[in-house]
Design a binder for these strands. Structure first.
Length: 717
DNA sequence: CCGTACAATGTTTTT
DNA sequence: CATTGTACGG
């Protein structure tokens, strides 16, 4: 009780009201940077302080990482253990519950989870077996099918409506596609498979049909908190409705202007529907921004004011001072990359940690050129978004082995595994699977070996029948055994880029050590897919720079933010141009990107860009840029270091940065033993000169390596 | 029936 | 431009 004063007094009145409203439905509309996370953390702490056991709290967030961080922060706040709080995503909650209660609707506890590509593979399989891929050349492809299927569920539209609006060329196949979807559902149920959508759907079905489960949930989770509510869909809204039906103690937090998951069925209107589901809802708005400076916020407010829909709030800040956002229009992407890297090095010299700087972009591939430049200049970085480790073929192979160990009826994974073996193609694989369906292993062993003379098949089946996942063997031991078998096939299949791929696997081997059950390992990989760079970069000696898609940057903030490729067709994306709603979402995406910045914001918009199909073309600046008043940003010119010594000339007279306007230090002018002065680190002695780099022992900071190109050092006599 | 060599195709964001 | 489908030879 004594401690409570401290954290409650740190809150503004609105935040405090949200924290102190413990019972009943509560909707918090929280603008970007308005202390949303802080409010959630404090409320969680407050609940516990009022005597609520942590295990009665359910915290739903957008990523599991976010939940973990909040629980950590609450623990620190009260110096108590909050680890019994159940925290995670909707999908992970549903997954856990279905492992426990799935039997009610005919699912065994060891059902298999399908990721996106698994689902696509299944569509392909069914497409072939229904004879839909034979002569009709224009029948939709597997990824289109999976996409359509998911949309019918998440956006609650009929297949016909969706086809009409998005794929009119496939309308003629409506009956075939419908039949395919029915088959897809049947197949999943028969083989104990669930895709991502099934997790929500099936759990909702149980909640709807079993009042006793609702009661049980009410007792188990007496307080529910949901973060990022603007990015939930109707299905998730309904899950909340049932989970909280007995007590109504549910708080949701969201920002309608930051809704960026429409393609996944999220609708910002969900926020406004919340009071309809829970008529007693109390609404609180958080409008004070604690993150960004006024110039950044001004830009953000204009972006959202330009949108067609009226949003609920205008942000204000007390951080009045600050540099205007900078726009740089490079001649091409190469020049953009150089500018960004130069600026980053400059910031680092000023003492900003690389991990406090982020480069954001609409699509993962937009950063390729920059990544090359960063590697060349030796700047460590991690990238979020884009290709997931799980999506690479070799990881999927290993996972397929694990999946059939856990669920022998997962014939989709059996199919993948069998096709890896030399001498086994689609037909033989199909025959083997038919045999397995009639008669399980090990009884059918000899019959199956009779179908193919493949040595690899024989070796695998022998190994397979000896592995016992639920008994004494650890996940790591099992993975080792599989690797022992798989390695020769791996070398044969991926002979060209063996070395690149084997690196990923090493990461996987070290990750598996943390798990005590194989089941948990596999579902975790599917529910929170690992980023490729998350496994590679353990040995970095410096906090790395962040590269991220805007979607993956949600909820985070940095000292400086760069936004890449503000070009029509890239941002806004080509696919959003036809449809106003999609375009509006792109605008919100830009808003999200801008509001990630605390102090400095750089907007990049190259004049020429590589567009798929037509090579290098002139780029049209993004409409999001052209609709901004010029007074809100500074446009700069820039010459790359090769052409001249690194030099920026301000276009307008009050350009924020004086750094480039002074002459730069020349490489030759320093020797060991010189005394020098740095504008931010103060005085120091030169210890070593290494080409373009110099090592200086600063009085304030100790020995530091500087890049002469980007530093202005003054020699003292 | 398998594996490979060649042609075509559309190319975002994620649990 | 890299993945995905098709044609053909072994």
């Amino acid at each position: 009780m004594r401690e409570s004063k401290n954290y409650l007094q740190d809150l503004n009145p609105a935040q405090r009201e949200a924290v102190e409203t413990l019972y009943g439905p509560l909707l918090v509309i929280a603008g970007a940077g308005s202390g949303k996370t802080k409010t959630l953390v404090c409320r969680m702490a407050h609940l516990v302080e009022k005597g609520i056991p942590p295990e009665k709290i359910l915290l739903l967030t957008f990523t599991r990482r976010a939940a973990k961080e909040m629980i950590e922060r609450a623990s620190l706040l009260l110096k108590r253990d909050f680890h019994k709080v159940t925290g995670g995503t909707f999908h992970s909650l549903c997954h856990t519950m279905l492992r426990q209660y799935g039997t009610l609707i005919g699912y065994s506890p060891n059902f298999t989870l399908l990721d996106r590509t698994d689902a696509e593979d299944l569509f392909n399989l069914l497409k072939t077996s229904l004879g839909l891929s034979d002569n009709k050349k224009r029948f939709p492809k597997k990824d289109t099918l999976a996409n359509l299927y998911s949309k019918t569920l998440n956006q609650e539209k009929s297949l016909e409506e969706l086809l009409d609006s998005e794929y009119p060329q496939f309308l003629e196949f409506l009956p075939e596609i419908q039949r395919l979807f029915v088959e897809y559902k049947i197949y999943k149920k028969e083989h104990q498979l669930m895709d991502y959508d099934d997790l929500l759907l099936n759990w909702l079905e149980i909640l709807k049909n079993y009042p006793q489960i609702r009661d049980e949930m009410g007792k188990r989770f007496h307080f529910i908190m949901v973060d990022e509510y603007q990015d939930t869909n109707t299905l998730q809204g309904e899950i909340i409705k049932y989970m909280a039906s007995t007590h109504q103690n549910v708080m949701v937090v969201g920002d309608d202007s930051q809704s960026i998951y429409r393609f996944r069925g999220a609708n910002y209107r969900n926020i406004f529907d919340f009071p309809k589901i829970f008529p007693q809802t109390k609404i609180i708005k958080l409008e004070q921004n604690y993150r960004s400076t006024q110039p950044i916020l001004d830009l953000a407010n204009v972006i959202i004011a330009n949108s067609k829909i009226k949003y609920t709030k205008t942000l204000f800040t007390l951080k009045k001072e600050g540099a205007k956002p900078v726009l740089f229009r490079a001649k091409d992407e190469a020049e953009t990359s150089k500018f960004v890297v130069d600026k980053i090095l400059e910031l680092r010299e000023k003492g900003i940690k690389l991990s406090q700087i982020a480069v954001l972009f609409r699509s993962a591939y937009h950063s390729y050129e920059l990544e090359v430049e960063l590697a060349k200049r030796g700047i460590p970085f991690v990238k979020y978004g884009g290709l997931k480790l799980l999506e690479s073929a070799h990881i999927k192979d290993l996972l397929a082995f694990l999946k059939i160990i856990l669920n022998p009826r997962d014939f989709l994974s059996w199919n993948r595994v069998l096709l890896l073996m030399e001498g086994i193609g689609p037909r033989t694989a199909e025959k083997i699977i038919q045999t397995l369906k009639r008669e399980a292993l090990p009884t059918s062993l000899n019959r199956i070996l009779g179908l193919s003379p493949s040595h690899e098949l024989k070796r695998w089946l022998e190994l397979y029948t000896t592995i016992k996942p639920y008994e004494e063997e650890s996940p790591s031991e099992i993975l080792q055994k599989i690797w022992y078998f798989y390695e020769p096939l791996f070398q044969r299949i991926y002979s060209e880029d063996y070395h690149r791929r084997v690196k990923d696997l090493e990461g996987l081997f070290s990750l598996v050590l943390k798990y005590k059950s194989l089941d948990e390992f596999v579902s975790d990989l599917l529910l929170e897919p690992l980023e490729i760079t998350e496994l590679e970069g353990e040995t970095l000696d410096e906090d790395p720079l962040i590269l991220s898609t805007i979607h993956s940057a949600k909820g985070l903030e940095w000292h400086t933010v760069f936004i890449l490729s503000l070009i029509e067709g890239r941002f806004p994306s080509l696919y959003s141009l036809k449809n106003t709603d999609d375009l509006e979402e792109e605008r919100r995406l830009f808003y999200v990107a801008v509001t990630r910045a605390r102090e400095k914001l750089f907007l990049l918009s190259p004049l020429m860009v590589y567009l798929p199909g037509e090579g290098k073309t002139f780029a049209k600046p993004s409409r999001f840029l052209t609709e901004l008043p010029k007074t809100l940003y500074e446009e700069v010119n820039y010459t790359t270091p090769e052409e001249k010594s690194s030099h920026i000339k301000p276009v307008t007279e009050n350009y924020m940065n004086t750094h480039y306007s002074t002459e730069l230090s020349s490489t030759s002018s320093f020797k060991i033993g010189d005394f020098v002065k740095h504008p931010h680190f103060g005085e120091g002695e030169v210890l070593e000169v290494m080409g373009e780099k110099i090592k200086v022992n600063f009085i304030s900071k100790g020995p530091t390596i500087l890049h002469l190109k980007y530093t202005q050092l003054e020699r003292l006599l």
